[in-house]
Amino acid sequence: MGELLRFSGRSFLDILEYLGRLTAFCRQILDAIIHGRFFPRLLFRQIVTIGYGSQTVVVVTGAFTGAVFAAQSYFKFKDFGVESSVGALVSVAMCRELAPVLTGLMVTGRVGASMAAEIGTMKVSEQIDALRAMAIHPVDYLVIPRLGAIMISMPLLIAESIAFGILAGYAVTVIGFGVPRAWYVHHLLYHTELEDIVIGMTKGFVFGLLIVIISCYQGLAATNGAVGVGRGTTISVVHSSLAILICNFFLTFFLNSLFPLGSQ
């Protein structure tokens, strides 16, 4: 019993300590935004890597999620004779939940891991020290361009995911199952508000911040050679994914209080 308490106490303290270190890192980022040097070329390069490069994975994820969700909803909705509402359900679910969360998780795996590994390798091979020795702050050079790029890219990736999810849902329901197109589109447009899209893009924006902050932190904190880089990369993916899922819960309630669902 004592051992269990000690273990949970230590875990709790570890989490607090980790959050403290992340907060200190956020302060460094803020300092870099205010006092640091801006590297526009690196920002554009990161937009290409993070935003442009993630499109395939995001589109495929969004489309198949939309398609599966539409199919499952259709199977049940058919029993109640409301299969024409599938479009509305898919659209709202994609906007508010599925697109931001799944895109966030996919970008974590694709981009977050690569950031942690790349920056971590630079750290353990003294490349970060070389930057510092040349009077370049590593946060200015490595973190801020990635942060800017993901802030721009994530909302757009979410929008893309939503669009392809809805299209795939349409294809499955209207073309595949023969639900009347006019009813399907009418329900979809009637129930989807601009706020739903705003919610999705806002969530994506926040998830993007979480991915960059956690992954870059793990990269910059890497020690102990290849083992350390590997460990940092794993931690960055696990922590980013957990942070996205936990943050999504609170963000859902917060954003729903701003844009309530079902009030129209």
């Binding site: 390798t121 630079m122 091979s125 003294e126 490349q127 070389a130 020795a133």
Partner: peptide, 12 residues
């Protein structure tokens, strides 16, 4: 000040 690191520390 310029510094030459032990392993070079070139940018990959």
């Amino acid at each position: 000040v310029g510094i030459l690191f032990q392993n070079g520390a070139l940018f990959d």
